[in-house]
Amino acid sequence: MDLALVVAFQVIYSIALLVLISAGLAVVFGMMRVINLAHGEFMMVGGYATIVAVGAGVNIYVAMLIVAPLTVGILGLVIERLVIRFLYGRLVDTMLATWGLSLLLIGLATLIFGNTTTGISVPIEGFPIGAYQVNGYNLFVIVVTAVMVVAIYAVLSGTRWGLIARGTMQRSDMASALGYSPDRIYMLTFFAGSALTGLAGGVLAPLVGLVPTSGTQYIAKAFITVISGGASVIAGLLSSATLFGLVSQIFTFSVNSMVGEIALLIAAVILLRLLPQGITGRFFRGSM
């Protein structure tokens, strides 16, 4: 019984992790049809921002939840102005340019922080479930992710800005005619997406040893999760993360972590072969 709870906890955690690392990419892709291949490096920057801030004496929660998103958000803003805005509507070109950016960011991070593993300690104690000890920080990750998803939903469906943004994404000409500048909306959306990515990087910083190339281990997973989810930002993200999290954890527990990872990837291939438009291309259509 305790074991079942622990397994369930791990499964929920791994789903939350997938949602967390993919959210920024999902927003940017779902809203703007831009695939940001520097996504992983944005997370890496968020991680470094957190570690540097903690090193400078900032409270760790402030560093993770405020400093990291802001830093990466601003970075995203700069990149959007300098590079991405020239490439809207050219999916492949944006992918290539952001790929270049990812290399650039890795290079810069190496220059600044050196190609060495750094990290900070986890700020939360473990707690027992029955006879088992579980990582308390994992619970924190789950909570942060849940709050984040609710917040994205609330902003998109409940606020005026969300309405305008969604309208602009559907008919930018119409939005423009109504007096809203698509250029500015795109810019803000990219900022929001980047900030979410920074949040993910900050929250994960205590869990992993950070190196400048850390981002590369996330990008593939995030990319797969978002594309498999399909066009709808939240429904797509949640459905594909649930599927992949479940598959990978089941195999991780029954065999080992490597088989779990491979199972996730194979699930993605099968899924895309059967549903070439992603999950929300077939199910939950029209949802957000």
Binding site: T116, T117, G119, S121, V122, I124, E125, G126, F127, P128, Q133, V134, N135, G136, Y137, P206, L207, V208, G209, V211
Partner: peptide, 19 residues
Amino acid sequence: GGPHMSFFRQWAAAGMKSK
């Protein structure tokens, strides 16, 4: 290597260190 060091952090964070 560097990535594997996360194990000791996560181990301690789960409170397993004393167990």
